[in-house]
Design a protein around this nucleic acid. Structure first.
Lengths: 333, 333
DNA sequence: CTGTTAGCGCTTTCAA
DNA sequence: TTGAAAGCGCTAACAG
């Protein structure tokens, strides 16, 4: 194992530790040419590399942020993570990603762990069930931004999709292509922002299109229960002819269902999914989707967080940043 | 911001720092009941939470391992990561995931960064172009295990798929279902283990099935060039009737190609992919795949690494652990 | 059973 | 232009 420290370098170069430290932090202003070279040599000869942990302890900054996603199984999460990472790289920040698995207890553990690790800030897709904890973070003036979800009880800078519009786009597209009996399938709302807002937007859009809102066309079940829920819905005397899948995982279930029951898309059932899944472009039929600008959203969140970290405690505006969804029109409706 | 330290707790509870430390490390053996309670109260009253960074500095252990994947876009990578995380959780280890993006320079930066952060060990999917660096790590006796790939120049404990067998399974399945002219499409081999081995295994299997090895049926191109390569291959006087896609990303391109050119699967072209993609079960047709036991492989790698970390320097066996692929027979061949 | 003390490796005044 | 010294928050002998 390696054990060469700054002291070793200093000794080897015959200077003091502080001079080496200066060197490492690129403060050559007052450093003699010969000193610099000696240090340089000592470092390469010894194969020295600085210890971040020690530095972090002293500086009270780890140059690391934590990202807690509610559920890593969504494409959206993974795209956002990549965007955050990209932006952080530019500023020499590192990220630690944790997956709460939709479990508030897990989320809490991760938040505690990350704070113990002294990360400089947090981007979280809140599960929603840790309000006291979020409140404490906010009171401590700890840099944090929410992603994808907001909580009424609390105002923290957030970035999320214009979910109403996303649902509206889907409804309009269905209407444009001639459908009237339109359904939506979702996982249980449980106060989770995108789900609630998309269903809300769905109803509003139906109304503004002069279509009735049929509660039986609004289904919500756990991932594992979606298929049977769909079965029920399609067994209705007058079943829906079109289905909006609330997100990528729901879409998977809808497609599985269709495959298993030989429901033809779009002839028997038109489908639009929110989230542009990887295979949308070559599925049969190709899938009409509503894409989230995940990349820009991730960048924005990272930007907001880094700003907060830098301007510690001022400019802690807790605005909500909404992003525009995009309709990608293909052949499933 | 929070700033309550162990000293604060100690003062509040009217004991010394070391007693608090004992408490935190669950060494109650010699601690008075009343002392313990006073400390407990002080901690909750002050909202104290220990500083991992300080502890790590002292203990020279961060309870964190780094995972560097060659390319996060493969399902295999993500599944392995989840498995590693699961196993680490059990031992209170944390993981930091980095994506080398198939770029050796990036890989090097990440390895250096993670070591600077004092992670206790590394699981890496080596890009292959950093042999000197790997050698140094090994010489430093730094805990490390390789995943998915091996390097002849170096012997480090590794876990990987039995790639020969995977290719063989595919060939046998094609033969069983009546195909003779079988091709394979890959990304450029570049000495990358799974690619080389799968192609090798493919040839061997062909031979042992008494089939000729036709070099024109062995294509290899960058992801973005796969479609045109396929076009060429299928324009051959006697084109292949079956294609083995070397991994999930290649499979995507094969499917895109088929869709775009109205090549029917399996009537015009049978397809098997290595890696069981999420939509394999509900694609049309459902896709025959060779699945990797990603979960067990991830667990194994984590297990090996944790063992190395614990038994520091002994038992550093550098065996190669091969895992059995599994054929999932569906309708694309 | 609890307190004292000496660092872990680094940064940062302040002097020289 | 460089060095000495203090200290970040925690742990671990060792004393008492």
């Amino acid at each position: 194992m390696k054990a060469v420290t700054m002291a070793d370098v200093a000794k080897h170069a015959e200077v003091s530790k502080s001079t080496v430290s200066q060197y490492l932090n690129n403060r050559f202003d007052y450093m003699g040419e010969k000193t610099r070279i000696r240090i340089e040599e000592a470092i390469t000869e010894l194969g020295y590399s600085p210890n971040f942990v020690a530095r972090s302890l002293k500086q009270k900054s780890t140059m690391t942020i934590g990202v807690i996603v509610a559920n890593i199984l969504h494409v959206f999460s993974t795209q956002v993570i990549r965007a955050i990472e990209d932006l952080c790289n530019e500023s020499d920040f590192h990220i630690i990603v944790c997956n709460a698995d939709d479990d508030p207890a897990k989320e809490k553990r991760y938040i505690d762990m990350l704070r113990a690790k002294q990360v400089d800030g947090l981007i979280v897709f809140p599960t929603g069930d840790n309000v006291p904890l979020y409140k404490r973070l906010q009171n401590d003036n700890y840099p944090i931004v929410f992603m994808d979800r907001i909580l009424q009880e609390i105002s923290i800078g957030s970035v999320l999709l214009d979910n109403y519009k996303a649902a509206e786009m889907a409804v309009k597209e269905f209407v444009r292509t001639g459908y009237r009996n339109i359904g939506i399938v979702s996982t249980p709302v449980n106060g989770i922002t995108p789900r609630g807002e998309r269903i809300e937007g769905f109803k509003k859009a139906l109304e503004s299109q002069g279509l009735p809102v049929n509660q039986r066309y609004i289904a919500s079940a756990n991932i594992s229960g979606i298929q049977s829920t769909m079965k029920e819905m399609l067994a209705l005397p007058e079943p829906p002819e079109a289905i909006l899948a609330l997100n990528d995982r729901v879409l998977f279930e809808v497609l599985k269902f269709a495959k298993k029951n030989q429901v033809r898309i779009p002839e028997d059932l038109a489908v639009i999914g929110i989230d542009d899944v990887a295979f949308a472009g070559f599925y049969s039929p190709t899938l009409t989707t509503i894409a989230q600008p995940a990349f820009e959203m991730g960048k924005k969140a990272a930007q907001l967080l880094l700003d907060k970290i830098r301007n510690n405690e001022k400019s802690c505006v807790s605005e909500i940043h909404r992003f525009e969804p995009q309709l990608i029109s293909r052949k499933s409706c």
